[in-house]
Write a protein that binds this DNA or RNA. Structure first.
Length: 629
RNA sequence: GCCGACGUAGCUCAAUCGGCAGAGCACCCGCCUUGUAAGCGGGCGGUUACGAGUUCGAUUCUCGUCGUCGGCUCCA
């Protein structure tokens, strides 16, 4: 079944490390070397140049910017006089094939900054890059550099580009049937939405035709497990235009999955010493002024509603409410860690273009908890949460993820981040030490923290390769003080607790979106909306089938009988398509013997067995939340 | 939010140059009484996303709105 097949996850970090996405540079550096030295990388980098040549021939007035290899291919960003059409792409691709077959050498030349300025005198973006290179600190893609880079140009045929390479030696190394232009997209110069928007052409390139075809085939396969497609087919959720974008409606099947996840969370959290609270969806403006969210977060919040002169906000997070609960009475160090848990429903006004199926929505229910802890207990508690993650990930068989320590950036202090560098450095080191001591592998990423502290994010990739934070585990060294939270320590002194925000099961929306893709819709029994479907062979067994379904339900197994007038073959097909784990087939034989025949989703069969035997099997799988059927 | 593409029946998709909007599946009604991935027949189903405009005539051309998709930006 390829349970863990992902097209792109975890992707080569190049996807994040290059092309102006500075944020994951550190992470990229750790694993990137191999790809960067590969022939494939040269092919893609060179293909980008060849594409740029074709584009410049088509638009002599075009301004060109950067064109790095990325995972599976390359792109190049252009400032063009008009929008590109699909026909343009075809023409560009055709011209690229001609250029490739011209067998041109790629020639590198190291130049001075002034020479480079002369060469690119009509190319404002290149001039900007040259200035940057001359000043040092960053390479042409904006990645930080330790040393001042040399400035080099690469030429093939008539095309010259500012480039550090590497490239193939000759365009003949790029096979004309092994690359393809994929799409055009808008992209901001240097990745900054305040800058001009350029046109980015994405292409894919491989060693040979077969690899290209394999990749295109994989893309098709990935689309089949896209949660948006499966979610509709398996009747898990829908979106409705009148309800609004990003506001999913959970169908009964989705409802079951949510209930199962909550049951799981409650069991695990109860064992781990959490207590459950409930808080309202609305609050006065005062609460978010107090928490400090409003200045940092207002643009992601639904605008306030005003009643009797008081502004109310719909909550985008649960923390301030939990802080109020912590502060509702005097706390002693003996009360710590205090773990307040709630599957809280939050609303965030995500920009329209950022919405993405269930993975990015505007209404969400978070597997939320806030743990109030002393500094002394911090490491142990933080690792307790990481352990919880790992238990969940084992349960789901999630193997492809990256734990990322998200740090502040100096430049963001006082803007994106609470302005207290000392506490940033201190808490970051606490997390780093906890993770290192716990032997948990992680990567670090600057400028990815929450505004109130560093965090560990668990990064996963959707079927089509988009990256998301699934679970998160955040340190908050700032907000408890704003709420005047304190506890009395052993010495009778007041101290401000640290707060750990954690959501190991993410939100229902993102978690279920992810699980749909992870399992390709074929959920383990405990999570399957319909666990067993009873299929009578003729209508002579309808009553028997109904009776069996009833017995199954009485045993806590979600089951129904298919009494439609279709033939058995069609009923089996329907059940297979809905990925029901167990099909109970009953015909004349079974009815007379008081038995059943079992067809499992994987195609295996056990004919004429006692119902009790099946019930025992199903109950065992459910009770253990087993991976096997 | 930005750039681009797209929007036809519940779903998946057709419809020539601007000339009466179609198929399969699903659904409903029958027939068949069936042994592990689609039995057969009939029926219902549309203000072609919405609103303007051009035209004798618009699913088709133009503009606007809404929504979806691919990216960018942003994120649980």
């Amino acid at each position: 079944m390829g349970e863990n097949f992902y097209l792109t996850s975890p992707p080569s970090p190049l996807l994040h490390g290059e092309g102006g996405e500075r944020k994951d540079a550190k992470m990229a550096q750790q694993v990137q070397e191999k790809y960067e030295e590969s022939h494939l990388y040269r092919i893609r980098h060179s293909a980008a140049h060849i594409m740029a040549q074709a584009v410049l021939e088509m638009f002599p007035e075009a301004k060109y910017t950067i064109g790095p290899p990325v995972e599976n291919g390359f792109y190049y960003d252009f400032d063009l006089p008009r929008s590109l059409t699909p026909e343009d792409l075809e023409a560009i691709e055709k011209r690229m094939r001609q250029i490739v077959q011209g067998k041109h050498d790629f020639i590198k030349k190291v130049v001075s900054a002034d020479e480079a300025r002369q060469i690119f005198k009509d190319q404002p973006y290149k001039l900007e890059l040259i200035d940057g290179l001359e000043q040092g600190g960053f390479d042409e893609y904006g990645n930080p550099l330790k040393e001042k880079p040399e400035i080099s140009i690469y030429q093939h045929d008539t095309f010259v580009d500012l480039c550090r390479g590497p490239h193939v030696a000759n365009t003949r190394e790029i096979k004309p049937d092994a690359f393809k232009l994929m799409n055009v997209a808008g992209a901001y110069w240097r990745g900054d939405e305040n800058n001009k928007q350029l046109q980015r052409i994405y292409g894919t390139a491989w060693e040979n035709k077969q690899q290209l075809e394999e990749y295109l085939h994989q893309l098709e396969e990935a689309k089949k497990r896209d949660h948006r497609k499966l979610g509709k087919e398996l009747e898990i959720f829908i979106f409705d235009e009148e309800v609004g974008p990003g506001l999913p409606l959970w169908l009964p099947n989705g409802g079951v999955m949510i209930e199962e996840l909550e049951k799981l969370a409650k069991e695990m959290e109860e064992k781990a010493g959490y207590v459950r609270v409930r808080t309202p969806h609305l609050t006065k403006e005062d609460l978010f002024l107090r928490s400090g969210h409003l200045p940092y977060y207002a643009e992601s919040m639904y605008p306030p509603m005003e009643l009797e002169g008081v502004k109310y906000y719909v909550k985008p997070m649960n923390c301030p409410f939990h802080h109020k609960i912590f502060g509702s009475k005097q706390r002693s160090y003996r009360d710590l860690p205090l773990r307040l848990a709630e599957y809280g429903t939050c609303y965030r006004y995500e920009k329209s273009g950022e919405l993405f199926g269930l993975m990015r929505v505007r209404s969400m229910q978070m597997n939320d908890s806030h743990i109030y802890v002393s500094e002394e207990l911090f490491e142990q508690e933080f690792m307790g949460v990481v352990d919880l993650y790992r238990k969940y990930f084992d349960l789901f068989g999630i193997e492809k993820f990256v734990m990322r320590l998200s740090l502040h950036s100096k430049a963001g202090l006082g803007k994106k981040y609470v302005d207290n560098e000392r506490l940033w450095l201190k808490t970051e080191e606490m997390v780093r030490r906890a993770m290192t001591n716990g032997g948990v592998p992680f990567v670090e990423a600057e400028d990815e923290a929450a505004f109130y502290g560093p965090k560990i994010d668990v990064q996963i990739w959707s079927a089509i390769g988009r990256e998301f934070s699934l679970a998160t585990n955040q340190v908050d060294f700032a907000v408890p003080a704003r709420f005047d939270l304190k506890y009395i320590n052993k010495d009778g002194q007041e101290e401000v607790p640290l707060c750990i925000h954690r959501a190991p099961l993410s939100t229902h929306e993102r978690m279920i979106g992810f699980l749909i893709e992870h399992y390709a819709g074929a959920f383990p029994v405990w999570l399957s909306p319909e666990q067993a479907r009873v299929i009578p062979i003729t209508d002579g067994q309808n009553e028997y089938a109904e009776n069996i379904a009833k017995q199954l339900r009485a045993n806590g197994i979600r089951a129904s009988a298919d009494l439609s007038s279709q033939r058995m073959n069609a009923k089996i097909r329907d059940a297979q398509m809905m990925k029901v784990p167990y099909m109970i087939v009953v015909g004349k034989n079974e009815m007379e013997a008081g038995q059943i025949s079992l067809r499992v989703r994987d195609g295996s069969q056990q004919n004429n067995i006692p119902l009790a035997e099946f019930i025992a099997r199903a109950k065992d799988r459910i009770a253990r939340r087993a991976k096997e059927l």
